[in-house]
Design a protein around this nucleic acid. Structure first.
Lengths: 209, 209
DNA sequence: GACTAAATAGGAATAACCCCGAATCTTAGT
DNA sequence: ACTAAGATTCGGGGTTATTCCTATTTAGTC
């Protein structure tokens, strides 16, 4: 029985490269892929892979949020973050969200293979470069303390330039609901413009520049 | 005689993925790689590949500067930029530096293969997505013009979270004038939300995060 | 002088914002 | 199991901001 793997990364060339390398290995099977977080959450729910290799910077729904939801939906599934960032906040948020592994894109492919087998056994795999970062557990101001899941989701779409209507249609709810969410976000953060919200979202890694 | 290819990208997993896919194709040979721009310049001088696939964001020496130096050193070598950015400034800087191709990492691998053969024949290859970006800037009435001083001034205040009224009062003109400026900015940049403008302003260094 | 772009605005339609209330649904605690 | 708190979902209704189209004045260029 081979290990079923799902790829989530917004760069198609990266997905194709990973797939090519993974499929050369025995005992692994890439059963699906997605180019954004929202699609990943949906497809994983259907396909039930063993392991997800998840990029962090993705449109629509970033890798941290996607991880949080997938872990909630599908408790057995293991997630390995594959990121270009060694930023401590992102690492700790990703692990807090439920990821079992964290590998940098500048690492060797063999490290990813190690991570896959380690995580499959139920252990967790953290790159050495990252390990140092983890030890400094600064939970002083937790990154995602203020906003709820839904609010962060709305904020990301807002920071990506979408209008209230577009967000509503994207999330399949009434525009009035999005209205309420945005109001709540602004109230919580004490901000009163899209520009400020956008900068906040960038600082917090909810969206990318 | 196969085409000799050199890979320059700071993410080793990306290099390995590209190598795996390229070597499955016939007529191509990856003869070397580098994880930073400075090393790339040095190795290319020794190895004399036909084509270099060059990432832009690299440590030590970025892809644009590396391209400039390689073209100076080795006039016959062709360079294809493989980047995550479709930013107009980066594209034009890269082409000005001497690159013959520009492909996005979110493109299909087959596009990169097309680019390799196109560039080998002496032609240049620009992704359709990039072409749009360039054409839009060039074809709109404000001919590939950057923003005016006044527009940049307005954009900065906008990206700092100020309202139209606040900006108007700040610059001592009618709010309607600021309206027009913002409209003109959006038209020139082909953006339609404050969020996008804010990100642009950050990228351009007009405001800080 | 003719032409062009920049900076300046007005009017009208559209969208965003902000207050209120309120029905479900989860979750945590006792 | 009950309760309390919070999250999520919407509607009404009014205010404010934005967008779109158009138009004038000013400044610089050829």
């Amino acid at each position: 029985m081979s290990i079923k793997i799902f790829l989530a990364d917004d760069h198609r060339i990266m997905r194709e490269g990973l797939r090519a390398m993974l499929e050369k290995k025995g005992g692994l099977e890439v059963i699906g892929e997605a180019g954004d977080g929202r699609t990943a959450v949906r497809l994983v729910k259907e396909m039930r892979p063993d392991i997800i290799i998840m990029d962090i910077g993705m449109p629509e729904l970033n890798g941290i949020e996607a991880t949080r939801r997938i872990i909630k939906n599908c408790p057995g599934v293991k997630i390995i973050a594959l990121s270009i960032h060694s930023d401590k906040r992102l690492v700790s948020e990703m692990l807090k969200a439920g990821a079992s592994g964290y590998v940098l894109k500048e690492a060797a492919f063999s490290e990813l293979i190690d991570a896959i087998h380690t995580v499959k056994r139920g252990c967790s795999y953290i790159s050495v470069e990252i390990q140092d970062v983890i030890n400094k557990k600064l939970s002083k101001h937790p990154l995602y303390s203020e906003l709820t899941d839904r609010e962060r989701e709305v904020l990301q779409l807002l920071a990506e330039g979408k209008s209230t209507k577009q967000i509503a249609s994207c999330l399949d709810v009434s525009a009035k609901t999005i209205d309420s969410h945005r109001q709540q976000i602004m109230k919580k953060l004490n901000m009163h413009s899209v520009a400020q919200l956008t900068k906040y979202a960038i600082r917090e890694g909810i969206t990318s520049i």
